[in-house]
Design a protein around this nucleic acid. Structure first.
Lengths: 153, 153
DNA sequence: TATTGTTATACTCTATAACTATA
DNA sequence: TATAGTTATAGAGTATAACAATA
């Protein structure tokens, strides 16, 4: 039990509010990106690859907090959409790498603009101090709680 | 475009961090409640009914930001688990009401305790000022953005 | 044997749309 | 016709587990 909560004031659960707001924000974003033929999860994967040239599926799984199987399926869909290419790793016969195609790379800024617009829609009305605090706190949770170790696989 | 973001610093999207943290928190909570045979979405529905005696499916759909069809299916599962009962509304032959069974009502505090524990796990390390700020900001977003009107149906 | 990745399977969550019964 | 609800269908997202290839 948290020191600041009791079972009686149910609406005070931060996890509840986080989920509620996050679901709405993601749904709104999903609607924006679907015109470009991609989903939110696909965008997240593409974004991981933007600065990286190429990444192993297992590496992506760790970063995104998903299993390797889930990444495989996500990658399949992006490959079918010609956003991604899979290639064998010459150094290790078991390994594969995933990289953006030029089409995929070209799409990222458009999606990023939509993400900007979505952020603006949900967060621009906040005082800039609150907006900064929200970002800082979320990052702190990720860092302190070491979020990324979830998928046991 | 938000005034505080550009397409180049992609990791600054609040929506991204919100989603990332929320997914981890919800997944951890899902693991805790599954021992009691319910899912997170089921818990949210049960919780809506705790203070209400009985609600119409359409009312729940509006509150939870889901379609009526989705509520129907969720309710089916909870009824199969004997947590919920469906009853005809005597005043309107079309209408139904959903209410917790005594077993359902008895389970809520146990789930609430798990929610407390989950919250503690993810948020207790924050300074209490930050914890309060997070709750306040999330609530403000819900209020100002009027979140609940999403499902068009 | 351990590791990388894929595939098979299953289930939750959710939407859209068609349908039923009542108003 | 309009409304309340359910059902049918579909697809995303994700997990677990079995499998294949390589190390």
């Amino acid at each position: 039990m948290s020191s600041t909560h009791s079972a009686s004031d149910l609406t005070d659960h931060l996890g509840y509010w986080l989920r509620y707001v996050s679901n709405h924000v993601s749904q709104a974003f999903a609607r924006k990106v679907e015109a470009h033929g991609v989903t939110v999860a696909e965008w997240v994967l593409m974004r991981q690859l933007l600065d990286e040239e190429a990444l192993a599926p297992s590496h992506l799984a760790e970063r995104m907090g998903m299993t390797r199987g889930a990444i495989s399926k996500l990658a399949d869909r992006l490959i079918a959409k010609s956003m991604l290419v899979r290639a064998a790793d010459p150094k290790d016969g078991r390994a594969q790498t995933l990289a953006l195609t030029s089409a995929g790379r070209a799409l990222v800024p458009e999606l990023a603009a939509l993400a900007d617009a979505n952020d603006a829609e949900f967060f621009d009305h906040l005082r800039s101090k609150d907006r900064a605090a929200l970002l800082r706190i979320l990052r702190e949770i990720v860092e302190k709680r070491g979020l990324k170790s979830l998928p046991v696989d």
